[in-house]
Computed example of a mutant assay.
Amino acid sequence: MERGSADTTLSIKEIKELWSRTYNEVGKPGWSHIFSYYHDNIVFQDSIQRIEGKDEFLEMCNRLAKRCKSLSMEIFNIVKTDKVVMMEWKMTMSFRRFPNKPIYGSTRLTFNDEGLIIEQRDYYDLWGDIYDGIPIVRPVYRRFMKKFFG
């Protein structure tokens, strides 16, 4: 992709290809091939944390890669409008002695005028997806969520 062209953001096809290579079923995940698409002032936020700056973002990605025994991502849908991309996914993670666990979510990528990702917001219910895999905890957690949040 040539920066400075009429549409400088990544295409849906490019995003699907790049993000699918990020996560693999065997071995450690790696993000190094997508880091060049992030702006130095990237703001990343998910259910757990808010990270500001590319150095901090790279550190967070490397920490996750180090902790994961394996990690894979299946992208279901991608929608692009102007400088915003939304994608829906299933990420399956394995940590140390724990079995593979799927987490379902979505990601919003916001691009600046140069075609770099200036903001990434990941949406997912980490604890719900984890607790759903634990037979004794699942019903208690779901009753709690329904009672207090709807």
Results as ranks from 00 to 15, higher is better:
86 M>T: 02
33 H>L: 08
37 Y>W: 09
1 M>E: 10
146 K>N: 13
51 I>C: 05
99 P>K: 02
100 N>K: 07
82 D>T: 04
128 G>D: 04
58 L>P: 00
98 F>L: 13
127 W>F: 15
14 E>M: 11
37 Y>M: 10
112 N>S: 02
67 R>G: 15
58 L>E: 11
1 M>T: 13
43 V>C: 06
137 V>N: 12
2 E>Q: 14
141 Y>F: 13
84 V>F: 05
107 T>H: 02
60 M>L: 15
113 D>W: 09
141 Y>I: 08
42 I>E: 03
80 K>G: 04
117 I>E: 06
88 E>F: 08
91 M>I: 07
67 R>P: 10
10 L>T: 02
137 V>I: 15
37 Y>G: 09
146 K>Y: 12
19 W>R: 05
104 Y>T: 06
48 I>H: 15
54 K>G: 03
115 G>K: 06
129 D>V: 00
28 K>H: 12
144 F>G: 06
57 F>G: 02
47 S>P: 15
142 R>K: 15
70 S>H: 00
126 L>V: 01
108 R>D: 07
39 H>E: 08
111 F>P: 01
23 Y>L: 06
137 V>G: 10
42 I>W: 02
33 H>A: 09
71 L>M: 11
139 P>F: 05
27 G>Q: 04
36 S>G: 12
143 R>K: 12
103 I>C: 03
78 I>S: 05
50 R>V: 14
52 E>P: 00
120 Q>R: 11
26 V>I: 14
1 M>V: 12
49 Q>A: 14
102 P>R: 03
110 T>S: 13
42 I>Y: 02
105 G>W: 01
84 V>R: 13
113 D>I: 10
136 I>N: 09
28 K>Q: 15
82 D>V: 00
103 I>D: 04
46 D>Q: 03
61 C>E: 13
66 K>H: 13
41 N>L: 07
96 R>W: 15
144 F>S: 05
73 M>P: 01
109 L>D: 05
62 N>P: 05
61 C>Y: 07
62 N>L: 08
53 G>N: 11
119 E>D: 11
60 M>R: 12
54 K>N: 08
47 S>T: 14
57 F>N: 00
30 G>Q: 07
18 L>A: 07
23 Y>H: 05
87 M>W: 08
8 T>E: 07
63 R>C: 07
32 S>L: 03
53 G>D: 12
16 K>V: 10
84 V>H: 11
57 F>K: 02
106 S>F: 00
104 Y>R: 03
52 E>G: 06
58 L>S: 09
35 F>T: 10
146 K>W: 15
44 F>Q: 00
89 W>I: 08
115 G>V: 07
30 G>R: 08
18 L>K: 09
82 D>M: 07
102 P>W: 09
5 S>K: 09
116 L>W: 13
75 I>D: 04
135 P>M: 14
94 S>V: 03
6 A>L: 12
131 Y>P: 00
83 K>G: 11
129 D>G: 01
44 F>C: 05
112 N>F: 05
123 Y>H: 08
